[in-house]
Simulated assay, not measured.
Amino acid sequence: MKVATPPLSVLQQSKKGGDLSNELVRHFLIECTPKGVRLKGCPNEPYFGSLTALVYQHSITPLALPCKLIIPDRDPLEDAVETPSQSITNSAAELLKQGAACNVWFLGSVEMESLTGFQAVQKATSDVLSLEAPPTPTVVHFKVSSQGITLTDNQRKLFFRRHYAVNTVIFCALDPQERKWKRDGYPSAKIFGFVARKTGTAMDNVCHLFAEHDPEQPASAIVNFVSKVMIGSQKNG
């Protein structure tokens, strides 16, 4: 992820339930590191490329927080009112302008005919893991932006760069069977994939399969960004 350098800040989260007289507001420090920003003292939290990305991701899933953040539907400094859907769309658009990127293992691409959804990711994973001579996994740079998904093989072992336009990417998910990819000398890694329309066709799909390379950039965060931010923006647009 590209690293932003926001100042140290305090994130306030309302706490529902429990003893209200004991603690109405919990405070979480946000720390800046060379890898990005993250909640301080929460080792299970991933790093984010910007403060905007951190806040938006925690509005989708709470991660280490006691509950999801609620993005305000209006600016308290202005008298203009936005609907919640407009606010989410604006946040997603802002994130896509910045883009997000990390390294992943590229495991291969499997043609799906018209299959999509979780079944496509599951079948692609089964096909790749069952190969007698599986393809050599390659580290690629995985970038998500308003233009789509761009894969760059910096060592040019398999290809140089492949781009999948935003309007061709139709689904992204973790392997439904929660299988992991293993390689000697590396910890087991979660597998995920995205389904895109095959070039020059209207119905044929291809599932592109990956495994997380950096535990601090988990597959779940990548899938959420592609599904909720990039694909979600197209549906809301």
Rank of each mutant, 00 (worst) to 15 (best):
Q98E: 15
K180V: 08
R156A: 15
S227G: 11
T125E: 08
L129P: 03
T5I: 07
F159M: 02
P72S: 02
S109T: 10
G232C: 05
E31V: 04
S91R: 12
V3R: 14
A53W: 00
E178I: 04
S50L: 00
L20N: 12
A124D: 03
E178M: 09
Y47H: 11
E111A: 07
R156N: 13
P46V: 03
L158G: 10
V229R: 01
F194C: 05
R179E: 08
V139K: 02
P62E: 07
A173R: 01
L209Q: 05
L174E: 11
F159R: 01
V104P: 09
L69I: 03
F192V: 02
A93R: 09
K143L: 12
D19F: 12
E23D: 09
Q86E: 11
N103I: 07
P135S: 00
V121C: 08
P66W: 08
M203E: 15
V10C: 15
K68A: 12
Q57W: 14
P7A: 09
C102T: 09
H58P: 05
L174C: 10
S9W: 01
F142K: 00
I88N: 10
G18C: 08
D127F: 08
E78V: 01
G17A: 05
L77F: 15
D153W: 00
H27A: 14
R197T: 15
G193H: 00
N154Y: 14
A221H: 09
N44L: 14
A173F: 06
R156L: 13
M1R: 14
S233R: 10
F225H: 07
A219I: 00
T89L: 13
R179M: 05
T83K: 07
E178S: 15
A124M: 02
L29P: 11
P134S: 06
F106Y: 13
